[in-house]
């Protein structure tokens, strides 16, 4: 994809170009780009040594570790179950099919704070699920496991909604061809279907991961927020802000943003590469 579209040679027949582009660029710059640049400015002011100093705080390091680690775990779970969900929704027809299809987007529509307190109520030691789990000696609420649970909820739709359209477009002949060549069901899935849905799966995984790293509302209730145990990076930003340590808050934000953008860029590159290679044959 080229960053610069080609300039149209013909005179513009449709009016409003200057007005709409002007408003778009001005609004975007004022509302989004200028404020985001503040993070870069703040990080620049701190310099590498300043950021390094803040990073060397074990509490910061641990919070980042928890945020990235739990997001990775949750995105992995969602990759597996999201693929299964997409498969079932595309391939099977059963009573309630449409309802479930609509319900998949609940995590997008439900405010995160509501999800947070609902999950906490469920997984707390006296909650519906927490009670039976604590009988098994598993503690979910107020541990990193609780964070993973919240992030599974939040990230659930990403993989489903990425993989679903690709599975829908998959020509049945591809699998039939593999079957005539002697491939078993497992071989067909692993060697034919999985490679075909891999780019979409990767996209969904990454979006779930990126969302999980930055997630705040659904996590802080169930996490318990114990420093060095279950404290996430976004919460540490809030805490630093409340302590008026704006520099530290901005530094953590800068690190999170850099990593997130790097991952998104990487994914875009992988997508472009796979599109180029696979074409639409």
């Amino acid at each position: 994809m080229s960053w610069f579209g080609s300039r149209s040679a013909s005179p513009r027949v449709i009016p409003g170009f200057g007005l709409t582009l002007g408003i778009t660029v001005a609004y975007l710059s004022l509302v989004a780009l200028l404020p985001l640049a503040m993070i870069a400015m703040q990080a620049f002011r701190l310099g590498l040594s300043g950021i390094g100093h803040i990073l060397s705080d074990p509490r910061t390091l641990h919070a980042l570790y928890i945020s990235f680690g739990t997001a990775l775990a949750a995105a992995t779970v969602n990759a597996v179950f999201g693929t299964l969900l997409a498969w079932v929704l595309v391939r099977y027809r059963f009573p309630g099919h449409r309802l479930i299809d609509a319900l998949i987007d609940l995590p997008f529509a439900l405010p995160t704070a509501v999800a947070g307190i609902a999950l906490t109520a469920l997984y707390a030691p006296n909650g519906w699920i927490g009670k039976s789990l604590s009988g098994l000696g598993i503690k979910v609420a107020y541990t990193p496991l609780g964070i993973v649970i919240a992030l599974i909820f939040i990230g659930l739709p990403f993989v489903v909604r990425s993989v679903q359209p690709v599975l829908e477009d998959l020509a049945p002949e591809i699998e039939e061809a593999a079957a005539t060549l002697g491939a078993s069901q497992g071989q067909r899935f692993c060697r034919i279907i999985l490679p075909l849905i891999a780019p979409a799966l990767l996209t969904g995984f990454t979006m779930a991961f990126a969302r999980g790293v930055g997630e705040y509302g659904s996590v802080i209730f169930i996490a318990g927020n114990i420093p060095m145990i279950s404290e996430i990076a976004p919460l540490l930003i809030v805490i630093r802000l409340e302590e008026f340590r704006t520099d530290a808050a901005a530094a953590i934000a800068a690190i999170m943003l850099t990593v997130s953008f790097a991952i998104l860029l990487l994914i875009n590159l992988i997508q472009a590469w796979s599109r180029k290679r696979l074409g639409d044959a």
């Binding site: 020509a171 591809i174 061809a177 075909l196 891999a198 074409g279 044959a281």
Partner: peptide
């Protein structure tokens, strides 16, 4: 197959 059904990956 009519449209070949090649494995594009």
């Amino acid at each position: 197959f009519q449209h070949y059904a090649l494995f594009k990956t």
